[in-house]
Design a protein around this nucleic acid. Structure first.
Length: 488
RNA sequence: GGUACUUUGGCCGAGUGGCUAGGCGCCGGUCUGCAAAACCGUAUACGGCGGUUCGAAUCCGCCAAGUACCUCCA
């Protein structure tokens, strides 16, 4: 592969040249959502971040197998090894079968992702559909001597693992300190050490989601699904594992330990973590209750939002920051993105209508290379966007006929915009979803204002004609004291 | 308390030793019957204190503030 793509690897905390394990092929695993609630802005970040990674790797010519899981079992409240399963809790509260909850929110997740123009992954496996694989994985770890059974549950023996490996190497933790500080608290737990984590949990009598295993009727530990499904679909070693920074510890740390213990080798070559979206400087998260769902953004139905924001605005907003930086949400910031995106899209539309001349009086030769350089520098989408913005004045001056562009240069410029703006950043040109609706509303307002004008001139023929025609089309027109109202 | 990260102009947000990031907003201008849009242009910055260097927003140290994860507590 001829490219100089550098990816920041959380393991080394450095940008590393990307070299795939298998020539021309890339395996990528990204942690997907736990489907017990509507997707919020925080869920959009990894989806969009790794969508761009996916798109760029495809563009470079790789055959990419992109696996993004659906967590529908085993993720406990408070991410601890005790407490009620999140899905089961939601099911109990809503009086639904757990799988109804899963299906409902999975459908809604897919709908939101489609609106954001996030490409579907190659495989989207469910944890509940891979119980056998997870049981096998537990057995492997037990056979290797890195786990122990306790009252029907199976726990990973972190202390033993750490004697020959470094538990904590991803998140930079020193497990000896943790062992020291937690040793006193043992006693009531089935676990030998509080740092140990569950591979398999015996189900309590009221627990609905349960499967048979050699140890008990129960369910798999949360961290296990990624080890089992990643291995199943991408092999024992694969290129990229992605997810949010909040999953680094314990989730990904545990996954590394499980794979090393069960398979005898490290599975992942490049670990990538996107940063959080903040609101008022604080992480936007389910547990904090400060989240805004994607649907609320699209509908504008939230106290912090001044109006609806199109999915493309949300996507653009996220891409205007580098994925490893936090992004602070505010309605003002989103409005700024909305306007910026609109200008960019208008520029692209205008570009496609330019008339070429015999020669160019401008130089666009380095734009493609600049964009490519930015993408290769750990997917620096804000820089790509700034380069595209820099091309807008050129387009404007050609449009206003102050400058000329040759057919060759015009085709190149269109090609670069198409590639980066549409294909790689994934910004759709036609915003018929909510922008179209907005334009349509404005068109009706326009008509009614014409009618208002006619009324003021006592031109009743025109006034009545507009009202009657619109009424015939299904609109309800109401005159008010000094204006109008309408609805369908 | 531990680990990691962050601190850039009115707001958002790149950059990593000397060369304009970019967006939104502001202000000025072109255009227009007026306005909007569009276009052109100007201004504003690198948390604090030291150090390294010819030169630091960029490297090093200390301090301050903040965030995340963990731990502790409840």
């Amino acid at each position: 592969m001829e490219h100089k793509l550098y990816i920041y690897n959380t393991l080394s905390r450095k940008k590393e040249l990307f070299v795939s394990i298998h020539e021309n092929k890339v395996g990528m695993y990204v942690c997907g959502p736990t489907v017990y609630g509507d997707a919020h802005l925080g869920h959009a970040r990894p989806a969009i971040t790794f969508d761009v990674v996916f798109r760029y790797l495809l563009h470079l010519g790789y055959k990419v197998r992109y696996v993004r899981n659906i967590t529908d079992v085993g993720h406990l409240e408070n991410d601890a090894d005790s407490g009620e399963d999140k899905i089961a809790k939601k099911a109990r509260l809503d009086e639904l079968e757990p799988m109804e909850v899963v299906q409902y929110y999975t459908n809604r997740y897919h709908k939101a992702m489609e609106a954001l123009n996030v490409l579907p992954p190659s495989i989207e496996p469910h944890a509940s559909g891979h119980i056998m694989e997870q049981i096998d994985f537990v057995q492997k770890i037990l056979d290797a001597g890195f786990a122990y059974e306790s009252q029907g549950s199976v726990y990973f023996d972190v202390e033993k693992y750490n004697q020959s490996n470094h538990y904590g190497k991803l998140s930079g933790r020193n497990i000896e300190d943790m062992l020291e500080s937690t040793r006193d608290l043992e006693g009531q737990s089935e676990k030998r050490r509080s740092v140990d984590f569950a591979l398999w949990k015996k189900a309590s009598p009221e627990h609905i989601m349960r499967w048979k295993s050699p140890w008990s009727e129960g369910f798999p530990g949360w961290h296990l699904e990624c080890s089992a499904m990643g291995t199943k679909y991408l092999g024992e070693q694969f290129d990229i594992h992605g997810g949010g920074m909040d999953l680094m510890f314990p989730h990904h740390e545990c996954e590394i330990a499980q794979n090393k213990a069960g398979l005898g080798k490290d599975s992942v070559k490049y670990w990538m973590h996107n940063n959080m979206i903040t609101i008022g400087g604080q992480k936007m998260g389910k547990s904090l209750g400060n989240f805004i769902t994607l649907e609320e953004f699209f509908s504008g139905n939230h106290a912090l939002l001044t109006h609806p924001f199109s999915p493309m605005t949300v996507r653009f907003f996220i891409l205007q920051a580098h994925y490893r930086s936090t992004v602070d949400f505010s309605s003002a910031a989103l409005e700024a993105s909305e306007k910026g995106l609109s200008r960019l899209m208008e520029g692209y539309a205008r570009l496609q209508k330019l008339v070429p001349s015999s020669k160019s009086t401008i130089d666009i030769s380095d734009l493609r290379a600049k964009c490519e350089k930015a993408m290769c520098d750990d997917f620096n989408t804000p820089i790509v966007i700034s380069h595209l913005f820099n091309a807008l004045p050129l387009i404007a001056t050609i449009y206003l006929e102050f400058q000329m562009i040759s057919e060759e240069d015009l085709n190149e410029l269109i090609s670069v915009f198409k590639l980066y703006l549409v294909d790689l950043l994934g910004l759709r040109t036609e915003n018929e979803t909510s922008n179209g609706l907005e334009a349509y509303k404005k068109a009706i307002d326009l008509l009614l204002n014409l009618r208002l004008e006619a009324k003021r001139n006592k031109d009743w023929t025109t006034s009545d004609k507009i009202r009657n025609k619109l009424t015939a089309l299904g609109f309800e027109i109401k005159d008010t004291k000094d204006g109008f109202e309408w609805k369908i």
